[in-house]
Design a binder for these strands. Sequence first.
DNA 1: GCCAAGTTATCATATAGTAATAACTTAAAT
DNA 2: ATTTAAGTTATTACTATATGATAACTTGGC
Lengths: 269, 269
Amino acid sequence: MTKIKQNTLFVGTLAKGLRILRAFDETHTDLSLTELSAITGLDKSAVQRLAHTLHLEGMLDKDPTTRRYSPSHGWLRLAYAYYWSDPLIARAMPKLIDLSQRLGETVNLAQLSGQKIIYTNRLPGTRTTFAATLPGRTVPALCTSAGQAILATFPPQERAAAIETWPLERYTPQTTMDRATIAEEIDRAAQIGHSISHDQLILNEVGIACAIRGPDGRAWSAVHCSVSSHHWNDDRIRAEILPWLHDTANAIPPSHERTSAPHHIGLKA
Amino acid sequence: MTKIKQNTLFVGTLAKGLRILRAFDETHTDLSLTELSAITGLDKSAVQRLAHTLHLEGMLDKDPTTRRYSPSHGWLRLAYAYYWSDPLIARAMPKLIDLSQRLGETVNLAQLSGQKIIYTNRLPGTRTTFAATLPGRTVPALCTSAGQAILATFPPQERAAAIETWPLERYTPQTTMDRATIAEEIDRAAQIGHSISHDQLILNEVGIACAIRGPDGRAWSAVHCSVSSHHWNDDRIRAEILPWLHDTANAIPPSHERTSAPHHIGLKA
DNA sequence: GCCAAGTTATCATATAGTAATAACTTAAAT
DNA sequence: ATTTAAGTTATTACTATATGATAACTTGGC
């Protein structure tokens, strides 16, 4: 067994249990003991005991016939507790609903989470992909209009560091993988106060984002709108979406308490 | 320290860690070490080590000035993994979106989770309460139209047992606390194929639910719609909502694999 | 019907979590 | 300002608890 940390305050058993939970994702929707063992790198016995415990505690479902484990409703209950804990959600939600009704298009609340964007709340319109309807999805911040709109509010040197080092991932043939281009996009976003991206995560998808700025001008979150380029050209977007998007973002008072970066230790990548 | 279980496969440390996670809810959005200790019943030292570990692993945020812990984005990432693992979600989501656009009102996907209903996906319209916009919320099954619509598909003796023993909770002065009345409601739902409830969770809220039946006729989930009684009388609901609601529920093929009850051990209450 | 792969159960051992205590920090009170 | 209390971090000796190897038992594939 690989020692994880030589700290007396660190409870390795708990960390191992969390590894089991995190073994599940888009492609691993249900796992057997041996698969869990392979993915987590934990030995069979440990996985057996930990998975069994998680099952008893209601944090893993177990198919009685296939003996395969899968995420339980308990995972959604945790999400529910999260929503109450984040003061931004309650402030933003009503305005987001208004916006989605007005536009009739997909509207999201996006937050910076480490070096990624997490869509915390989603109000999907028609013509969206499945993944785009699910809260909790994360994508590299640099790849998204929301991430760019947020980074545009950062002081120059932090912005530069992020553009240089934060991860990129290719989702479509058109995904921008060139950091210089991304730097330009973010510069432009800083000028005009919003960011528009094309074909980054899905082909023919246009992402439009406007940062939610704090009193210091800095943002950790953004209002995001996603439309199809088949139905919306740039002129129409400028005329019929941007004004409302700006209004919405400006109408949401950010979590004023937070003056420094959120500390998402362990949520690297 | 209270012994939790005398099973060699049970990892008490992990269970304690989960207790910490579950200490957070609507009213406990951020907690100090001492508060965590009080709520979980774990001693100070244990809470210190477990919370510290969860923080390092990215499953708890910690405010550096107040030293208070709160749920992290990691909780939403788990929810995201859950959504992929439940095959019903992908089948239902597109139809729910269509329905919400057509009705212009709040639409939910509700599932039976132990003796409660959990709203797994929500497409809120205007005029909803904050809690009603959040996925992962649970309420006693007997209190909701969705729960009643689902129970109406159960065989008589199981239905009766549920009506007798499952929990009730008062949310409004009008919340039905009489089990005989609930039995009648469920009987009616079995006749007409849907359930309508008034003022159960919020005053002036009408809940309308239609079960998603499996090949055996039994349901574990429901499509749910919530409207304001100020804007919708029973006639209009019957004419303008019910037909679409039925169509939607019937158009969603349920998770055919599952033939017996989901086994949500530990999610009692 | 057999074999391979995977899952459950058992158990001696020492590692790894425990709980008590002490050192330190912050906020409140006088 | 100074003191006090409450709460948080750090340390340590101890032993309860998780470990991992192995064995018994299922299940499904051929």
